[in-house]
């Protein structure tokens, strides 16, 4: 089996006095989408932030594309080819949509063909190109945050709960966009919305109390309702 694109082995992360990640191990194979599931407070966001270098792991090994990235500074990790869409979206509200996207393109002005591709599934970005990001709706901010992550091709995209607080119609749109994205890059998605995750994910890892409690193919989990209830604590129906 080929080496996975990203792997975590026995990763521990402390935030202040709290021990959040308590030995997390999982791998993200190259291509497709891996979904990280788990209850609130299980440590999913902390796992993404630790991969991104925004929290420093206190123990364990993180490898990306063959190189150890644990302890590296955030900008270096980003330059290694990882893009990040945080839960808060973190769009620069004082900057326009154009400026937000231009900044995300590190190597120069954004490629027009690439922008057209983004506009094809996020047409709002084209409409509001010159509008300050602060005036966008929640869904549009999410689209902008994702556009920023993909304006240049990156090897891995970390996305933290893109459906949070979005209307169902917009979530449907998101599914289309992610299908498109999956074709060219690898995505690690943190999600609470199981139906969204199940419709997109190829692989799945489930976290609880700072550890990985299950890892495998998404199809297997989606088909096994008993396992869902056991791992996620909630049945599919009540989780929407």
């Amino acid at each position: 089996m080929a080496e996975p694109l990203l792997s975590l082995e026995g990763v521990h992360t402390h935030i202040g006095q709290y021990h959040i990640l308590q030995g997390v191990s999982f791998a993200v194979p190259e291509g497709g989408m891996t979904v990280l599931l788990g209850r609130n407070g299980a440590g999913k966001t902390t796992a993404l932030r630790t991969i991104m270098g925004l929290w420093k792991p206190s123990a364990g090994v993180l490898r990306f594309a063959g190189a150890a990235i644990g302890g590296m500074a955030t900008p270096e990790i980003a330059r290694a080819g990882i893009a990040y869409v945080p839960e808060s979206m973190a769009v620069f509200s004082d900057l326009t949509v154009a400026e937000n996207i231009t900044l995300a393109a590190r190597s120069g002005p954004p490629d027009p063909a690439r922008l057209d591709w983004i506009f094809s599934f996020f047409p709002a970005m084209k409409r509001f190109w010159h509008a300050p990001a602060g005036v966008l709706s929640g869904g549009q901010k999410q689209m902008l945050a994702i556009s920023r992550a993909i304006v240049e091709k990156r090897r891995l995209i970390l996305v933290d709960e893109p459906t949070k607080g979005l209307a169902p119609a917009i979530i449907e749109g998101m599914i289309g966009a992610f299908r498109e994205l999956k074709r060219e890059t690898t995505i690690l998605l943190v999600e609470q919305n199981f139906r969204f995750a199940a419709s997109l994910g190829d692989n799945v890892a489930v976290m609880d109390d700072g550890r990985i409690v299950h890892a495998g193919a998404m199809a297997a989990l989606a088909a096994d309702e008993a396992m869902q209830t056991r791992l996620l604590g909630l049945s599919l129906d009540s989780h929407q």
Partner: peptide, 18 residues
């Protein structure tokens, strides 16, 4: 589908200004 989402979010309006 994406178009539908966009029309809903953009709800027939001019580009918002700061």
């Amino acid at each position: 589908m994406t178009d539908q989402a966009a029309t809903r979010t953009g709800a027939a309006d001019a580009i918002p200004q700061a």
